[in-house]
């Protein structure tokens, strides 16, 4: 037995000589993102964060990295076009590079993906005013371009909305949105709680997403009476989701109580068995 060990030891010491087998291992094991590194980056980000970039453009990538788009994997080329893999040709129009959109072109720029919102926006007072003579706000006026965060009614505020007209209009809009927004917020919180306690909530999450996307698209019509008219409809939709969440929560409570009860049963039986074995010992 000891000789076998000795042989093994010799083998180990000589093994580094065969070290080229490491390659596959390192590719699979060490260099994978789960070993610490992050997801690979596009050449756009690489070059735009490097030294050669003009100082006034450097903040762009940093802002983007904090954005909701970044978290949802919407990258530079998804908005601006271009080739994220070929540094030399990346910003060539032949590769679909669109450049920077002008003030009035922004809605279509974003509307590639946010189709429903674009439709509502173009029909709204804001959209018409924009197309008529740059008087209306575009998407970037309200959301920003690179550091876009999750939308909420906090975007409607005195500073932003009284730039072109009185805040009164904005305020009545905010009030009309308030109830439903509050409900969405609560449901989001409940879903997060459920998820934290180990429940798969994707179905509810999708239903909620569909509802709030539709509702928030509605805001972009900036038609207060339309929003008010449809508040009931949205409240009902949200109530359905809420109900399912409550069912799940009470089911969870039942489960906890049920298994705690079983736990007590077994603990009780442990005590009984212990006492029984004591009587045998004596």
């Amino acid at each position: 037995m000891r000789y076998i060990l000795l042989l093994a030891a010799i083998h180990i010491l000589s093994s580094p000589a065969l070290a080229d087998f490491r390659e596959v291992f390192e590719r699979e094991f060490l260099l994978k993102p789960w070993a610490g590194a992050e997801v690979e980056e596009s050449v756009c980000v690489e070059c735009h964060t490097s030294e050669i970039m003009k100082p006034e453009y450097r903040h762009v990538a940093e802002e983007w990295k904090l954005s909701w788009h970044y978290q949802n994997r919407v990258s530079c080329h998804d908005c601006h076009g271009g080739d994220p893999e070929d540094a030399a040709m990346s910003m060539s129009p032949q590769r679909g590079f669109l450049g920077t959109p002008g003030y009035t072109a922004v809605p279509e720029f974003c509307g590639k993906c946010h189709v429903g919102i674009l439709r509502n926006y173009l029909e709204s007072g804001h959209g018409k005013a924009l197309k008529a003579g740059k008087r209306g706000p575009n998407c970037v006026t309200c959301h920003g371009s690179h550091g876009i965060s999750k939308a909420s009614i906090e975007i409607i505020n005195d500073r932003l909305c009284s730039r072109c007209h009185s805040y009164e209009r904005a305020k009545s809009m905010k009030q009309a949105l308030f109830l439903v927004e509050k409900k969405i917020e609560n449901i989001e919180k409940d879903l997060e709680d459920l998820r934290a306690s180990g429940v798969y909530t994707e179905d509810e999450r999708k239903a909620l997403f569909r509802t709030h996307a539709e509702f928030r698209a509605l805001f972009h019509t900036i038609d207060v009476s339309l929003v008010k008219n449809r508040t009931d409809e949205f409240t009902k939709k949200l109530d359905v989701i809420q109900e399912r969440i409550e069912e799940t929560s009470s089911e969870l409570a039942f489960r906890r109580n049920f298994s705690a009860f079983i736990m007590l049963l077994f603990a009780g039986m442990a005590v009984v068995v212990f006492l029984l074995s004591k009587t045998y010992m004596d």
């Binding site: 306690s197 906890r256 109580n257 079983i262 736990m263 077994f266 068995v273 074995s277 045998y280």
Partner: peptide, 28 residues
Amino acid sequence: YPHFLLKGLFMVMVYLAVMFFIISFMPT
């Protein structure tokens, strides 16, 4: 039997009680 088996049974009960403790209070 019965001495040692009872000891074992006791431990099995403890095992199950711990299992259901985790299921009830630390499900994640």
